[in-house]
Nucleic acid binder design. Sequence first.
DNA 1: ATTACCATACTACCATACAAGTTTCTCTTT
DNA 2: AAAGAGAAACTTGTATGGTAGTATGGTAAT
Lengths: 227, 227
Amino acid sequence: MKPIFTSNIAYRSVRDQVYEALKEQIISLSILPGTALSENEMAAEFKVSRTPIRESFVRLAQEGLVQVLPQRGTLVALIDRELVEEARFMRSQLECAIVELACQSLAEATLQQLDHNLQQQKLSLEQENVDYIFKLDQQFHALLFAGVNKTNTWNTMSLLTAHLDRSRKLRLLDNYDWQQIYEQHVEIVEAIKRKDCTTAAAIMKQHINRGQDDLAALNEKYPHYFA
Amino acid sequence: MKPIFTSNIAYRSVRDQVYEALKEQIISLSILPGTALSENEMAAEFKVSRTPIRESFVRLAQEGLVQVLPQRGTLVALIDRELVEEARFMRSQLECAIVELACQSLAEATLQQLDHNLQQQKLSLEQENVDYIFKLDQQFHALLFAGVNKTNTWNTMSLLTAHLDRSRKLRLLDNYDWQQIYEQHVEIVEAIKRKDCTTAAAIMKQHINRGQDDLAALNEKYPHYFA
DNA sequence: ATTACCATACTACCATACAAGTTTCTCTTT
DNA sequence: AAAGAGAAACTTGTATGGTAGTATGGTAAT
């Protein structure tokens, strides 16, 4: 009688697994901009058929992370400066609004999570564990959005900021300023605790727009990674 | 010798055509929330195989417009109030920022396009051509974003505001306030021409958040369309 | 040496076949 | 009549085959 859900509590299709794996590699620059991605090649690599590979390409193409040229090939998208600038604009606007909301009301649980995150950041900083810091940085901002019930906003924004992340990653290859980033994170949390909207937003704006001027230099240095 | 691009200046795959057609129908409520979409059915309807249908579903699922239940079926997503609220938040923040940018500098060509758009709005208003007004409204805001070189921001935002559009469409089925919408559009353009940032942003904020309170009533009236 | 041409080996796109899980209906049993 | 078991008709997920367009490399003609 009762159909009810019989299974699949956390079923993840091959398509989604491939999508996530590729996306991670593209954003982290494990796969460099401009690299050719053949359906057959990837199918062989992941030991699956072309179908789930293709469908993951469809998703990545929608986000602009790969470029599909019909009958010619699929490339990891080059870094588009226009996209990077817009991603920064979007992030700047939204993150500032979020942090002001956070000043008005933020769950106690979230504050604890933020503190915990900051502790881990400090640790990773001492250990110079760059990859993990990158993840913690992402998580820090995601926590702020989640804390004011704007998870979907974060997710949507992330579709564009993926491009920004790629340029950030490129920049951080030879220029570490994690110390400053960490300190700004601390200041932001402190301002939130004081409910000091103005300061929090000001630091956030500075925080997001830091490194804005380096983009042209990166383009000079790695011209073949840019569109 | 010269490989060059031999063809396909504006080739659109079946997948993309199906995607666009379905998306339009979902947002315009031609296909109602909760409707079952079978791959086989759609394949028969569009007279193509399941493959391009499936791939269009993948895209729609990524935007949250359809919900794929493995081995069970694919549904047009119900309207999620949380998504609608967040879409409104995101739009409010970004549109206000955009209109302020527009006050600072906007291409003359864009201003003309806006004026032309407003004329058409007025005409459609008199003719009560609702569907076309809806399109013109979209175009009006898209023009503002394009005028300050934030097309990608508009496109990314649209991924979330599609959900908002659906609730707006539902609301407009029995409640026409296009006159007010048109007047606000006029005021916004006038403020931009005066380079009056404050007023422009204020009206825009009001413009975006109009109808915010109706969502609960809609949920009451059409409960089976909501999640 | 250079150019034109053609065969070949790619590519992604679409169609189809098979697999595995879910729902629904029917028939049997009580 | 009600309930349970099982077959059949769905569903989406994955694999594979065929097609058309593109890039490449070799060959022949100039």
